[in-house]
Each structure stands twice: as C-alpha cells, then as structure tokens.
Simulated scan of single mutants.
Amino acid sequence: MKANIPALIFGLTSRSDGIQTMEGRFMRAIIEKRAVMIATTLSLTAGCAMQSAETGGTANQIGNIPANVVALADPNQDISTARLLPDDGCFWYEHRGPVETTLVPLRSPEGNPICAAREA
C-alpha cells in the first residue's frame, strides 16, 4: 500500500474500497483552495517586485548627478546617495536617521529644492 502523505498530514480518510469520506473530500477542497491562493499571491507579489527594476537610465542612478548640482547643494547633505526622480524632476538624497532611511529633497544652502530644468 502506497502512503498518501497529504492524507497522513491533514487527516484525510478513505474507506477500504478507496472512496473518500465526506471529511476527506472537504479537507482536500480546503487544501486545493489554499494552494490556489498561495500561487496567486506569489504571482501578484512577484509582478510588483519586478516593477522597481524597470526604473533605469543613467540619469536616475544613485550618485550620478551633474557637477553643477553638487556645487549648488548644501554641504550637510549626503550627495553620494542623490538621484533625479522622474516624478517631479527634482534631486533627492537618502537621509539615514536613527530609525529609518528616508528620501529627502536635495536643497541649496538657502533651503530651496534643486530640480532639473523642464523641457518645453
């Protein structure tokens, strides 16, 4: 007799003539639904994770900012993590606080945000 691992783990029972009992069919349906939900969840989250890899281009890479932007920026900011965000056309850098790391607008010594020139 071949051992039925799901039957042993989840308590699926069958009669001696090979027909599953009502309890066995109910448990099998629960297991199949759970497997479908897990597969769907993994597929959806994998698709979300792939989107962040698509934001590319050399202009948007961390630390790849023009020399004139470096000259404009306040010296108390971490220029090595600065990047141009295409959403607003401004430069942002990573501020590493005691609890979390947050993107903050790159600012001049006067406090003005530094943004790229907009195309007409």
Rank of each mutant, 00 (worst) to 15 (best):
A3S: 13
N4S: 14
A7W: 06
L8S: 08
I9E: 07
F10V: 08
T13Y: 05
T13F: 03
S14M: 10
S16W: 05
D17K: 05
D17L: 08
G18H: 02
I19T: 14
Q20I: 03
G24F: 03
G24T: 07
G24L: 09
R25F: 06
M27N: 08
K33A: 13
A35R: 10
A39I: 04
T41V: 13
T41S: 13
L42E: 11
S43M: 09
A46D: 13
C48N: 12
S52H: 12
G57P: 06
T58N: 13
A59R: 06
G63K: 04
G63H: 05
N64A: 10
N68H: 09
A71F: 09
P75D: 13
P75Q: 12
N76F: 07
Q77A: 01
D78L: 00
D78P: 01
D78W: 00
D78E: 04
I79N: 01
A82R: 00
A82P: 01
L84M: 04
L85F: 10
L85P: 02
D88V: 00
G89I: 03
G89V: 05
P98A: 11
P98F: 12
T101S: 07
T102V: 03
V104R: 00
E110Y: 07
N112P: 10
P113M: 05
I114K: 00
A117T: 15
A117I: 14
R118V: 15
